[in-house]
Amino acid sequence: MERLINFIYEYRAFFTFLFLELLCAWLVVENNQYQSTQYFNSSNRVSAQLLGFSQGVREYFSLRTINEDLARENAELRRDLERTRIQLTEATTDTTRINQFDFVSAKVMANSTHLYKNFITINKGKADGLYPGMAVIGDAGAVGKVKSVSDRYAVVISLLNVDEQVSGMIKRTNHFGTVRWNGIDQRYTTLQFIPRHATPVKGDTVVTSGYNAVFPEGIMIGIVTEVNLKSEAPFWDIEIELSQDFGRLAFVEVIKSKLKSEKDSLEKVTTGERR
């Protein structure tokens, strides 16, 4: 026993090293598990405020473009509103279904686009009704999913994150697949699992499919820029140009889906899946 203690003491530097590295490795692995409640990330108050300060300084230099974006978005919303009002005259009377989605506007506190796993920190949190799994959209299209929340802040897993998958659909043909970033260029992403018999062409619009009830159906993702079918491959290789410019994200909207829990629990019952 004494020998063992002496041994450990003699090599204490190595054992400390081993302990710390194992701890870090565990943290890395743990963090990769999707959607967990965490406190040691940029949604904690101190770091979020610091990041917000640094973002504020940068934002000052891009006020003009932000204003333009907001004005344009305003106009589009008004048009949408009008269109919806007309549609509603012939639509269902089930108010839950009409009000299925609720929007919360949030300001971007921090954002990255050049890592393999990019995240966005926003200034709304549990106090505003956010919880992990909610969809986040920008002025031009889908942005990501809420990963973890604190009282006043939340971390969003960006579409520019190799771990993030969103169900996407080619609007023209209704074929659906998985949108997943390849980690290289912040302007482009890929659409996977579109079967051979589909006929995607350059210029097709890709939107969210609504199959997982996180995103409402039909939220813009991007435009197909390249299609490629290898001779033996079961699926197309499709490259999409993202409609949302992640490089200058200033405001986003978080979507609260009121029917999500209902849909999820129904599907769980049907498939017997446990999560």
Binding site: L27, A110, T121
Partner: peptide, 22 residues
Amino acid sequence: FLLGFSVDIFYNSMGLHAFATV
């Protein structure tokens, strides 16, 4: 460890910088 871990908090990359720095 402390430096790497603090950097991780801001990069949202739990344990990554801490691992390399240790």
